[in-house]
């Protein structure tokens, strides 16, 4: 079956996720108002990553798609990370 009917996700799932995303947003705003030094960056980026994973898995249906899609998304994200790291090999040690 090529055009098989997809999994239907109930409305409330989306609303739960939305609630979670808003809570995460407010949390990251609150946390970054406290001065925690370099930890602030780490926390803010961690929360952003967490939010993205929800958007990717639920809103963008990766949870229900073929694993190939998730694998490709992870690979592309890693690629960007590696490019940043290799570029920093220059700047950190210059």
């Amino acid at each position: 079956m090529e055009n098989e009917t997809n999994h239907i996700i109930p409305y409330r799932t989306y609303l739960y996720v939305l609630a979670g995303l808003i809570v995460a947003t407010l949390t990251s705003v609150a946390v970054t108002q406290i001065s925690l030094g370099t930890l602030t960056v780490a926390i803010a980026l961690f929360i952003a990553a967490l939010k993205s994973s929800f958007v990717l898995r639920i809103f963008m249906h990766l949870k229900y798609e073929n694993r190939m899609f998730s694998a490709a998304v992870i690979a592309v994200t890693m690629l960007i990370a590696v490019v940043i790291i290799i570029t920093l090999l220059d700047y950190l040690f210059r």
């Binding site: 290799i86 090999l89 220059d90 700047y91 950190l92 040690f93 210059r94």
Partner: peptide, 8 residues
């Protein structure tokens, strides 16, 4: 570039 980047 930095030496580290050169070697890599």
């Amino acid at each position: 570039m930095s030496g580290t980047a050169l070697y890599t």
